[in-house]
């Protein structure tokens, strides 16, 4: 089932990688410019009409963001994850809000939390979750939340940190 769709897609697009997670979940990697077209095709031709989620993964070491669109076909009960690698610098992506109105919400969140731009997406620049945030978008991996929290907020003294494995061993099984 999924193989047919993938071979169909391979005819039209350059699939960079195909990872079979299980019999009904497969992840594809498509380049930035063709990804939304492929999603369009998946939606209208192959019946992947339920949009599950859109999120980004920060691969700081490679200088890339990975956008993941997970689509679900409720009839065949299969999922396809479309992965797109985009540059971390000047991150932007083709908007997919014309396919599902609800995608605009995900794109608003990604814009705010990762700083990924989706030109043309409605209300993209309205504050969504954060208020008055300045500096690095918080979900980027180079934003150190602990250092930020320690310097920005008033802390109560006396907090200690333990390594869970050794601490648990000391407390619970001191003789082992």
């Amino acid at each position: 089932m999924l193989e047919n769709i993938i071979s169909e897609l391979e005819k039209q697009f350059q699939l960079e990688a195909v990872d079979h997670n299980s019999s009904d979940l497969v992840f594809l990697t498509i380049d930035r410019d063709h990804a939304v077209m492929a999603i369009d095709l998946l939606k209208w031709k192959f019946g992947y009409k339920h949009f599950v989620l859109l999120t980004a993964v920060d691969f700081l070491e490679e200088g890339k963001f990975q956008l993941t669109y997970i689509l679900n076909n409720p009839d065949t009960k299969t999922d396809i994850g479309v992965r797109v690698r985009i540059d971390r610098e000047d991150a932007n992506m083709v908007s997919a809000h014309h396919l599902w109105p609800t995608v605009a919400t995900y794109q608003r969140e990604l814009k705010e939390m990762f700083g990924i731009d989706f030109p043309g997406s409605p209300r993209l620049n309205d504050p969504f979750i954060l208020e008055g945030w300045e500096g690095t978008p918080p979900y980027r991996r180079d934003f150190d939340t602990k250092a930020f929290a320690a310097s920005f907020y008033h802390q109560r003294e006396g907090r200690t940190t333990n390594d869970p494995a050794t601490y648990m061993k000391e407390k619970l099984y001191p003789n082992e």
């Binding site: 997670n21 979940l25 992840f27 599950v52 993964v57 997970i70 994850g81």
Partner: peptide, 26 residues
């Protein structure tokens, strides 16, 4: 305690009272 997971990604869903609850883990 120090569980290491090989590189990969997955999506898991379940049906809570409100509908599809999903986790995407990389």
């Amino acid at each position: 305690m120090n569980l290491k997971i090989p590189a990969g990604e997955t999506y898991v869903r379940s049906e809570c009272t409100r509908g599809e609850y999903g986790y995407y883990l990389v």
